[in-house]
Design a protein around this nucleic acid. Structure first.
Length: 479
RNA sequence: GGCCCCAUAGUCUAGCGGUUAGGACGUCGGCCUCUCACGCCGAAAACAAGGGUUCAAGUCCCUUUGGGGUCACCA
């Protein structure tokens, strides 16, 4: 029995990744199987090198370990899809030879126009199989001549296709709703669908435990297994974590913090986060809500899953965290606090910001208090959160625009933050004097602070993002 | 919009044909107490609607409604 978690290294380590990893891990450990970590970095334009390490660290932080993976190796290495390009190309070739797949020379432009036309005519969206009947020999010739193309799966034209989900039973889609999925992109890299199926088979994955959002592509995957002549694994689609506000859409950073590091930075204990994720869609049994990973593994079973999408509720996480915190010995609590931020390394990084601003040591803690606080209270400074001649709603929007800016950048440095802020200001036509004050208040809750960008750097991306978003909300509501 | 998944309090959930529908977070009261917090006690709060099946339905079936996901050379 083998399972895997297959995150894509495109940003911050996501709680959804931790969530799915937990269930894969618990199941594997209980069954005495193997838990594999595979990095799905086939999108060269989006994959980020720093993100992979962040994922390793986040998973380790909450207490999960894997038996095979890019960092620890294993019998099915490499575990990084970007290093397996030849494997996918070989497999695409097999499908081409079997006429299960075909080369497609349609341009992005034609595809875009097709989509617009389909939308206008209210027809179902999807590839129109324009290249499907091209003569394979001719297509091979064009490809050999260097003409850009992709490889598509030749989906059978008729018949219902079903797969069996352990939690949901048969899930069926009709052939006409499934278009000819791209398997190999024009850059020679596979799409998720190809890489995923090939790797799961080659890595002998027996149970694919992933989020519900994959249900509608699973029939395509089953078709792929069939085209290769392979047996598909058991599929288990977990419910999606949801945002806490009204809409209950799948959890997203636009709505609430999704980075594991955010929860770490606000002082959530890893065992509490893990425990909390274990109560999302799964119940321990009895009235137990607080349990360890080991206990969860012991009693784990799929029939205790409930399929309604659970809302990730920070209040309840905090309550659970409180339980863990209170049970610590004072000695352990001290260690946890030190591991968090009360350590020399962190102090050394922030002390230069305030050294010249204090006269006695008793002024130190008050001067840097906002570096150790959670959400700030903006009520006393509400009147300062303004930019002359700019509507509050636009100030709020502007704040979010700044977030988008640093979101798009790799790394987290004073220089980057300052560069982006400057560009942001000139784009909006705001005076830095006013705009930076709003940023300052958002990030610190006060008007007199250490230098803004150093402060943001010290605060960290997760908390900075959170505070800017909250300020935007506060401004939006205030008017 | 097409297709798919889902549906017990505001939120997380128990329930797997017969229960006064249980627990937890949050909320509100009270007790404890030098304050606050913890802790303890208590309260309000749910089976989306309508049809079936059955002696009996939150539990099974259908329809409706509602929510979500997905429709990329992203995963």
């Amino acid at each position: 029995m083998r399972v895997r978690i297959a995150p894509s290294p495109t940003g911050d380590p996501h709680v959804g990744t931790a969530y799915i990893a937990l269930f894969n891990y618990a199941f594997a450990r209980q069954q005495g199987g193997k838990f594999v970590l595979r990095i799905e970095d086939t999108d060269l334009s989006r994959a980020r090198t720093d993100s992979e390490q962040l994922i390793f660290d986040a998973l380790h932080w909450i207490g999960l370990t894997w038996d095979e993976g890019p960092d620890v190796g294993g019998p099915h290495a490499p575990y990084r899809q970007s290093e397996r390009g030849d494997i996918y190309r070989e497999h695409a070739r097999v499908l081409l030879d079997r006429r299960e797949a075909y080369r497609c020379f349609c341009t992005e432009d034609r595809l875009a126009k097709l989509r617009i036309q389909q939308q206008a005519e209210k027809r179902p969206l999807g590839y129109d199989r324009h290249c499907r009947e091209l003569d394979p020999a001719e297509a091979a010739r064009r490809a050999a001549a260097g003409e850009p193309h992709v490889v598509r799966l030749g989906v059978p034209l008729s018949g219902p296709f079903a797969f069996h989900d352990l939690l949901r039973g048969e899930v069926t889609r009709d052939a006409r709703e499934i278009d000819d999925q791209v398997l190999l992109k024009s850059d020679g890299m596979p799409t998720y669908h190809l890489a995923n199926v090939v790797d799961d088979h080659l890595m002998a994955i027996s149970h694919v435990i992933r989020a519900e959002e994959w249900i509608s592509s699973t029939q395509k995957h089953v078709l792929l297994y069939r085209a290769f002549g392979w047996d598909p694994p058991q599929f288990i689609h977990m419910p999606l974590l949801r945002n806490a506000d009204k809409d209950k859409t799948k959890i997203s950073k636009r709505k609430q913090p999704v980075s594991v590091n955010y929860y770490r930075d606000i002082g959530i204990l890893p065992e509490a986060l893990l425990n909390f994720l274990g109560t999302m869609g799964w119940s321990f049994g009895g009235d137990r809500e607080k349990f360890t990973l080991a206990e969860m593994i012991e009693v784990f079973s799929w029939d205790r899953i409930s399929l309604g999408g659970p809302v990730f509720n920070l209040e309840k996480l905090t309550w659970l965290n409180e339980k863990y915190l209170h049970e610590l010995s004072v000695d352990e609590l001290a260690d946890r606090a030190i591991a968090w931020r009360l350590n020399k390394a962190y102090l050394t990084s922030v002390l230069p910001l305030v050294q010249k601003r204090i006269r006695k040591l008793d002024e130190l803690i008050p001067a840097i208090e906002f570096l150790f606080s959670g959400d700030l209270d903006y009520t006393p400074v509400l009147g300062e959160l303004v930019i002359p001649d700019v509507a509050p709603a636009d100030v709020a929007k502007g704040l979010l625009a700044y977030v988008e800016r640093f979101e798009a950048r790799v790394g987290w440095t004073k220089q980057m933050l300052e560069d982006e802020a400057a560009a942001w200001c000139s784009e909006l036509g705001w005076k830095t004097k006013h705009a930076y004050m709003v940023l300052r208040i958002a990030v610190t809750g006060r008007t007199a602070t250490p230098p803004l960008f150093e402060t943001m750097a010290a605060l960290g991306k997760e908390i900075t993002r959170r505070r800017l978003r909250r300020t935007a909300e506060v401004i939006g509501k205030a008017k």
